[in-house]
Amino acid sequence: MSILKNFSSPTPPALLAAAAVLAAGAWVLPAWLTFLLTLAFAKALVVLGVVIQMRAGLVSFGQALFYCVGGYGAGLGAQYLGLTDAFALLAVGTVAAVAVALVCGFLLTRYREIFYAMLTLALSMILYGVLVKSSALGSTDGFNVAPPSFLGWVPGGVEKKRAIYLLTVLIALGVALAFHRFLESGLGRVTEAVRENEIRVEYLGLSPRWLLFANYVAAAGVSALGGGLTALATGHIDPDMAFWTTSGEFVFIAILGGTGHVVAPFIGAIVFSVIRTFAIQEAPNLWQMTLGIILLALVLFLPKGLWSLVQRRRREIAATSGQPATEASQSPKGISSPISEKGVRA
């Protein structure tokens, strides 16, 4: 548990407790709900990739690129490499995504603002176009991913879904702990300083481009894990994983949850999944409009996302008890979110 050493915040124990409760839910919650949570957590991992870029002042409208590479990596690993183990399949997707990011990052980290956003979008749409035209990969239909094994164990039926859910919770926990550490680390915090003043970072002797590159590669890796888990959970992959609307969904969730804490993407993803599920059920022809209205309301009334409600509550408690608020709740210490109270970058 060396990863927990020197943690100065209550977040790691809280994450462990939440993961334990969620894991226990595998035997209590209805199957539809554990499936929804599996997909929500997988998406949250992709959104975490979006969020760390936002904290560095960059918005990716193409994070679906790595979501798709992660999914196809797992699918192709099963189909062409004969792999069946879930960990190996996820590793194939993640390694592939990191390799893609190492190449694309050289180009992308030269750009900022809308140019960065549009280039990320363009790269994901190039992958979409290639996949759609590739009959060997199932073209627009994609292909199915065989049920995985877990370190030699081959579950069936309900056990299979439970195993994938538990794997997702385990990976989400590991990633959340690691990224919580990253966000507090020298690298994580200095990367946010790039957002504030790139010139000063350069004249402190650091390379803003290298910092953004490292951030981009980390975001790619974690997003690929989300894609791989989605492929294993649904048993299917198709080019829509790279489509621009998928990337838009990840940005939506990032705004919904907020960028102030490692937990925010998970909250955003769960809330998003629930809203979308019920919106489709209650208004099948209007669910996109429902989501649009929610996004509009968010930007107007809660620009820092749902996590800002937690921050506000923490500040209130701190104010009444006379204690300083902890970690990201201390905003406007400023490092926690690139978006001001009015949602406009200064």
């Binding site: 990863i3 020197n6 100065s8 550490r181 990253f182 507090e184 680390s185 020298g186 690298l187 994580g188 915090r189 200095v190 300083a193 504030e196 003043n197 000063r200 970072v201 402190l204 002797g205 650091l206 390379s207 290298w210 910092l211 406007p332 210490k333 400023g334 490092i335 200064a346």
Partner: peptide
């Protein structure tokens, strides 16, 4: 870094002074 505190500005400078590749795990 205007949205950071004076202390945070100094901490970022100190990290930068320690080397060109800040640590992924060591806290700021």
């Amino acid at each position: 870094f205007p949205k950071l505190t004076v202390m945070e500005n100094a901490l970022v400078s100190l990290v930068a002074a320690e080397g060109p590749r800040p640590s992924f795990f060591r806290p700021l």
